[in-house]
């Protein structure tokens, strides 16, 4: 896949970092404001897709990228399950138990395990949407060859 023109590349350089940071903001504040893991993950994936589209990359690099992203996605899902199961070992023997201290309503570090869930859901969603995008490109490139 070829990259786009200089104007697009320059604008992407300016925008992509901000979009990525905004995604992280949405994920981290998931338990306080509307949004959360899924919305923030989609925003992060959007910034990654933006960069890939603007700068393009060759076929082999795409395959390598896809492999790495799959690892991250599986890892995030496993961590999510691990947190869910850890509720089983701490306290009341119940999955999805919120075993950490709840803190003060409205503070950034509060609500027990919910921020952790949000972070891993965000990672998972960003990785999986990026995988979908990459694999669709890979299919297309394969058929072009």
């Amino acid at each position: 896949m070829k990259g786009m023109t200089l104007i697009v590349k320059k604008t992407t350089q300016l925008m992509a970092g901000i979009v990525f940071m905004y995604g992280i903001y949405v994920i981290v504040h998931g338990h306080l404001t509307p949004g959360g893991g899924f919305a923030g993950g989609v925003i992060i994936a959007g910034s990654l897709i933006l960069v890939t589209l603007a700068f393009g990359s060759d076929f082999l690099k795409l395959v390598k990228e896809e492999a790495g992203t799959t690892l991250i996605e599986s890892f995030a899902t496993l961590m999510f399950i691990l947190i869910a199961v850890s509720g089983f070992f701490f306290g009341t023997r119940i999955f999805f138990n919120n075993f950490l201290p709840k803190g003060v309503v409205g503070h950034l570090i509060s609500a027990g395990v919910l921020p952790l869930y949000n972070i891993f859901v965000g990672t998972e969603v960003a990785a999986s949407i990026f995988i979908i995008f990459l694999s669709l490109i890979i299919f297309k490139e394969e058929s072009a060859q």
Binding site: T70, L71, S74, F75, T77, L78, I81, A84, V85, F88, R93, I94, F95
Partner: peptide, 20 residues
């Protein structure tokens, strides 16, 4: 009673463990 969700958790975790 407490072990009922293991029917879902074990294969779900296994699926992603296999991928890694």
């Amino acid at each position: 009673n407490q072990l009922v969700p293991l029917f879902v958790v074990i294969p779900l975790a296994g699926a992603f463990l296999i991928m890694i």
